[in-house]
Measured scan of single mutants.
Amino acid sequence: MQRVNMIMAESPGLITICLLGYLLSAECTVFLDHENANKILNRPKRYNSGKLEEFVQGNLERECMEEKCSFEEAREVFENTERTTEFWKQYVDGDQCESNPCLNGGSCKDDINSYECWCPFGFEGKNCELDVTCNIKNGRCEQFCKNSADNKVVCSCTEGYRLAENQKSCEPAVPFPCGRVSVSQTSKLTRAETVFPDVDYVNSTEAETILDNITQSTQSFNDFTRVVGGEDAKPGQFPWQVVLNGKVDAFCGGSIVNEKWIVTAAHCVETGVKITVVAGEHNIEETEHTEQKRNVIRIIPHHNYNAAINKYNHDIALLELDEPLVLNSYVTPICIADKEYTNIFLKFGSGYVSGWGRVFHKGRSALVLQYLRVPLVDRATCLRSTKFTIYNNMFCAGFHEGGRDSCQGDSGGPHVTEVEGTSFLTGIISWGEECAMKGKYGIYTKVSRYVNWIKEKTKLT
């Protein structure tokens, strides 16, 4: 034993070699072989497995989906700052455009905790909710729209109204504003409101030439003092309507412009014939205590009207009353817009006519005020429907199939267009061939041609 100890002390290297040989010859039971080890760690190889990531292109799944990435790591994937920024906006807080917040056709661009709407022409605001041009839906104005110097929408209202708090709607500024039905039992019968379409306001006024200088022999019209197929109006439903009495009662109609003036057809009036105007009328054979009678003290036909040349060209006249009318729910003026808007309103496509005229061709006159909704007829169809001249200051309205029309005794009465609950004068009943005849239409004086003249002559002093 002493000898062994001496050998170990003198030859430590020998001992180490012996131990190493023993270990190498022993069977290893701690580690699995290569094949079995792979069965336990069965993990798919990654895209760049075996390579240094710093030297390969980034992978979106590896960089940002398996674990949260930084902007720089995302930049490695896209290799483009702009594309990385677009991805980053949604990656950080989701897609803010998912709810489609942009209105009126706006395009949404996502941002971090926010979004941006790219608005089409005519709109602005956070969600493109603000109209900035009158060309689109009248700028959301209830009545009139004008573009300011910086191309912003400025709404306005006709006389007797003021802008509401929203700067879009119009509200009454006087007790009985024009064009409004205020009798409670008839307010439910107000005709369907007309909503502004998209309009090209630059070209809204037709490029028409008034044929002022045409000389033409007097034409022989049949029954051209021209509501057939209409309905009984309720008291106060058309408070701007008046009836004219002269040699015979209810020979023509008219509309209240203001307390002192009536507008009617020029062919209705004769110099030297006494005319009485009755406002607030409903049943011409009954006294309903809503009527107001006034005498006409002055007749002003349009300066281009000449019955000797043509009885229905420039067929418009103004009547001055001896005493002002007292405005109330049964006696209310009709609204008159400017030339541009009167023309736009007419193009809405349908209007209402009213009167006490004959209820059928050569038949009896109506006792109760009649009204009828009539569609506008395109000019080409209008011209083809008659052998008589249709001037540019006239328009056609009615039904091709016949059966409904204005008729004798309705002449001078109103053709009105309702705009968001307020009625505007767009025409004056003038003439036609018979009444409600198939293929024939009622012919009306186009008020847009005469609004400046009306307003100039009827100013209240």
Rank of each mutant, 00 (worst) to 15 (best):
E124R: 05
Y330M: 07
R298K: 06
Y352Q: 03
F388S: 11
E54F: 06
D95K: 15
K146Y: 13
N42Y: 08
N36P: 15
E340N: 12
L460A: 07
R43D: 10
Q90V: 10
P324A: 07
L20P: 01
T209I: 11
H302R: 02
A317T: 03
G398T: 04
A207F: 09
S184F: 12
P375A: 14
S204P: 10
Q219W: 09
I7Y: 09
F348P: 01
G280E: 00
N80W: 03
Y330S: 03
R162Q: 09
C28F: 01
Q219Y: 06
Y161R: 04
S169F: 07
C407E: 03
I454S: 01
F345I: 13
I443L: 13
G236K: 06
I334F: 00
R449V: 14
A397C: 03
V202G: 13
N306I: 05
L319C: 07
F224D: 13
T158H: 09
F388C: 10
K347M: 12
A366P: 14
G439W: 04
N138S: 07
E231H: 11
A37K: 04
T194P: 08
K45V: 10
S11G: 15
V368P: 10
C128S: 02
Q2D: 05
L163P: 04
G272D: 02
D232P: 12
V278G: 03
E116D: 14
E53D: 13
V269R: 02
S329N: 15
A173R: 09
R226N: 11
Y91T: 04
L425R: 00
R46T: 10
G105H: 13
G357I: 10
K137Q: 10
R226T: 12
N147M: 11
T29R: 05
H303A: 10
G402S: 13
D93H: 15
D131R: 09
R83E: 06
S423E: 03
G409E: 07
V416P: 01
D111F: 12
M65N: 06
H400I: 14
N222L: 09
H303S: 07
I256G: 00
A279Q: 00
I15T: 04
R3Q: 06
I7V: 12
G413I: 14
E401M: 09
D212P: 08
F238R: 04
T332H: 06
V377Q: 11
G230V: 13
V353N: 02
C407A: 04
R294Q: 02
L383W: 15
V374A: 11
G439A: 04
N213Y: 07
D378T: 05
K293P: 04
L41H: 14
L372N: 11
M6S: 14
N283Y: 09
L24I: 08
C28K: 01
A173G: 09
T29K: 09
A37G: 15
C145N: 00
K387C: 04
N113T: 14
A307V: 07
T381F: 13
V269T: 04
R62W: 06
G412H: 05
S11F: 15
A26F: 05
L460E: 09
M65R: 08
E86I: 15
Y371L: 13
G246H: 05
S25A: 08
F121G: 13
C117E: 02
K137D: 15
W240G: 00
N135S: 12
C128K: 02
Q219S: 05
V374F: 02
C141Q: 00
A26G: 12
R180P: 02
Y444A: 03
T194C: 04
H314G: 04
C18T: 06
S156C: 04
Q167F: 12
N36H: 13
G409S: 13
A397E: 01
C119E: 02
D33C: 03
L325T: 00
A337F: 01
G106W: 02
F176Q: 06
Q2W: 15
H361T: 10
K51E: 11
G254C: 00
W240C: 00
Q167I: 05
F221G: 07
K51R: 09
A337P: 03
V4Y: 06
G412N: 05
T276A: 07
C145W: 02
G280V: 01
D198Y: 09
S169A: 14
L325V: 03
I136H: 14
T84P: 14
Q216T: 12
E98R: 14
N295D: 10
T85F: 06
N113E: 14
G122H: 05
Q2V: 14
N104P: 02
G105C: 03
T290V: 05
Q96P: 06
G94Y: 05
W261S: 01
K152T: 13
C335S: 00
L24R: 02
D315A: 02
H303M: 09
A308R: 12
P333W: 00
E433W: 05
W118V: 14
W453T: 01
T458N: 00
P375N: 14
L130Q: 12
H34V: 09
K274I: 04
K126T: 09
E456A: 09
I297S: 02
G160H: 04
Y371P: 06
P120Q: 11
F348E: 13
M65L: 08
D111H: 10
F238P: 03
N42K: 09
E165R: 08
L130T: 13
F388R: 10
M437A: 09
A250K: 08
P197S: 12
V374H: 02
R294D: 00
A317M: 03
T426E: 00
R140Y: 06
P177F: 00
Y305R: 04
K146Q: 11
C145Y: 01
L372D: 14
E61V: 06
H361M: 14
H302K: 02
A397K: 02
S114D: 14
R449W: 11
P172G: 07
H400D: 14
P177E: 01
M65W: 06
S423T: 11
N138W: 10
R3M: 11
V257A: 03
C157S: 00
L376D: 01
E434Q: 09
L319S: 00
D200E: 10
D33W: 08
M6A: 15
R75K: 14
P175K: 12
P44V: 10
D150V: 08
L23H: 03
K51Q: 15
G253D: 03
A9F: 15
R191M: 14
K146D: 11
T264I: 03
T16L: 13
E270C: 04
S187D: 11
N295Q: 04
Q2C: 15
H361A: 07
Q408M: 11
F348Y: 12
E82F: 04
R384E: 08
S114G: 15
Y352G: 04
V278P: 00
V30S: 15
G355K: 08
S411M: 14
N59Y: 08
E288T: 06
K438Q: 14
G58T: 13
I334T: 01
E129M: 04
Y305S: 02
V257H: 00
C178F: 00
V248Y: 09
F31T: 15
E270S: 04
I316A: 01
E401T: 13
S448H: 10
N80K: 09
G409A: 08
N222V: 07
K168W: 10
F395T: 02
T276C: 03
G398K: 07
D131M: 12
L19D: 02
D110W: 15
G403F: 10
V331A: 07
D249T: 02
K455S: 06
H415P: 00
F399R: 04
E456L: 09
T84G: 11
G246Q: 04
V154K: 12
P414H: 09
G106Y: 02
L425D: 00
V359M: 15
G229A: 12
S423K: 12
S365C: 04
I454A: 01
E165I: 08
G179A: 00
T271K: 03
N306R: 10
F123R: 10
K168I: 14
D405P: 12
R364V: 15
E54D: 13
G21F: 10
S49A: 05
E35D: 15
K446S: 09
I17V: 07
K188A: 13
A380P: 12
F196S: 12
L60F: 09
F251L: 09
I336K: 00
C396S: 01
C108D: 01
T342W: 01
K274L: 04
E86R: 15
I428F: 06
S329E: 11
I316T: 01
H34K: 11
L130E: 09
C97Q: 02
C97N: 02
T445C: 03
V174E: 09
G280Q: 02
C102L: 00
L163K: 04
G21W: 10
A366H: 09
F121T: 15
M394N: 11
